[in-house]
């Protein structure tokens, strides 16, 4: 409750461009959320469906007729793939962001509060992870996990979790370290509070504000990485779910033969959702960051002052 109030407080005070950015972003993201949640009803066919009522779909059919956006060379309905792809994308992103957020928060808090060698080792590991190019790291983990648990939503989410974990860890650890030195933490210790209480009741609420912003900014990034994984064939197998990146890579060959509809729509979906998530992230950033935030001030008219 307390945390929510502190996180939401700045919203009421924003105006102008950042508010519009936020609004536009929210509309775009909401559109995809609707697609993802209502995929069963919105998509005419399943993501791996090649026939309906015993009739096989045509291969590479042009948009129109039974297939709104046509079909691809695997006989799949493009529009259905786009809709189901939204579900996959959002599932992976939500899982990955939530995973790295929770893990990063917990590790950062403990590492920052406990300090010592525990902290040093974690920082070293996280810095090493951070230094890797995200895509490379995701590929490596994608490979390893695909071997162990198969190339599904969970493994894609897990490899993205590893990629984004260091960011949360670093932010949370650094703000924990500065909060640890603050008087109110010392006051809590003076009251006799044990370490666990200090972390959960005094540090948690004060280091959490930066997290949602990184979350939304990362979400956009994560989607890009996911698409790249799919493009390289390390994402979700076509039979496990619809993956925009995978569809895009399939469509590559089609483009040279003048078949545009197999790639354009999944590509557009990727671009649009990334844009939406970025707008939400930047909008939030400007809203929450007090330096960037422009407060709503009331204009004072000259006549008012002369009473």
């Amino acid at each position: 409750m307390a945390v929510m109030r502190r996180v939401l407080a700045p919203f009421r005070e924003t105006v102008g461009f950042s508010r519009w950015m936020l609004l536009a972003g929210i509309v775009i993201v909401a559109f995809f959320v609707v697609l993802a949640v209502g995929a069963e009803w919105i998509a005419p066919y399943g993501y791996a469906q090649k026939s309906a009522d015993g009739v096989d779909f045509p291969k590479l059919a042009e948009p129109g007729g039974d297939h709104l956006l046509g079909t691809d060379r695997l006989f799949f309905d493009v529009w259905s793939r786009v809709v189901w792809g939204a579900r996959t994308a959002l599932e992976v992103i939500v899982l990955a962001v939530a995973g790295s957020m929770i893990l990063g928060l917990a590790l950062g808090l403990v590492s920052g509060y406990v300090g010592g060698w525990f902290d040093r080792i974690l920082v070293l590991v996280m810095d090493a992870l951070y230094a890797f190019p995200p895509l490379l790291l995701a590929i490596v983990f994608g490979f390893l996990l695909a071997d162990k648990i198969g190339a599904g939503v969970v493994s894609a989410a897990l490899s993205l979790t590893v990629v984004y974990l260091p960011q949360y860890f670093r932010v949370v650890r650094n703000s924990t370290i500065s909060a640890r030195e603050s008087t109110y933490v010392e006051a809590a210790r003076a009251l006799g509070a044990p370490g666990r209480t200090v972390i959960t009741r005094y540090l948690f609420g004060n280091v959490i504000h930066s997290v949602p912003v990184i979350g939304t900014l990362n979400a956009a990034d994560a989607l890009g990485t996911l698409a790249a994984l799919g493009f390289l064939g390390l994402g979700i197998q076509p039979t496990d779910g619809a993956d925009w990146g995978f569809d895009l890579s399939r469509a590559l060959d089609d483009a040279s033969s003048g078949i545009w509809w197999t790639g354009v729509f999944s590509g557009a979906a990727i671009v649009l959702l990334i844009t939406g998530l970025t707008l939400v992230g930047e909008g939030l950033n400007e809203t929450i960051n007090p330096v960037l935030r422009k407060k709503r001030l009331q204009k004072i008219r000259r006549e008012e002052t002369i009473r």
Partner: peptide, 11 residues
């Protein structure tokens, strides 16, 4: 001399 600040609740 008057200096007024605009605030959410008024001047």
């Amino acid at each position: 001399l008057r200096v007024w600040y605009g605030t959410e609740r008024g001047a």
